[in-house]
């Protein structure tokens, strides 16, 4: 399924209501791993979310003379992220974990 940037708002609403599904795509910037490291230094921690709402955590490393976020932790898939959010919601905590 392909959903464009206009879906950002929809996803945002779903996030707020804590009912988004793993099928919901956010945006496709095609450069999130690079953008997240633009103002960082080599080996500095980085994190980005892809169009599937999966979370990638790692450190900035040099590729093609630019810094790119290289994941070194397991992908936090949207499904498990949602589960964590729902747990927090039930505990009256509005912060999304992961």
């Amino acid at each position: 399924m392909i959903i464009g940037k206009s879906s950002k708002h929809l996803v945002g609403i779903l996030l707020i209501s804590f009912t988004f599904s793993a099928q919901a795509h956010e945006s496709h910037t095609h450069s999130a791993p690079w953008q997240v490291c633009e103002s960082k230094k080599v080996t500095e921690a980085c994190e980005y979310t892809n169009g599937e709402m999966d979370i990638y955590k790692g450190t900035c490393q040099v590729f093609n003379s630019a810094l790119m976020c290289v994941r070194n932790q397991p992908i936090v898939h949207a499904e498990s992220s949602t589960e964590s959010t729902e747990k927090n919601v039930s505990g009256n905590t509005a912060t999304k974990v992961n």
């Binding site: 392909i2 496709h28 910037t29 095609h30 450069s31 999130a32 791993p33 980005y48 892809n50 169009g51 599937e52 999966d54 990638y56 994941r71 992908i75």
Partner: peptide
Amino acid sequence: DDGVLYDLTGE
């Protein structure tokens, strides 16, 4: 794209 491998279908 951003960590995901997509099928490059006609669609």
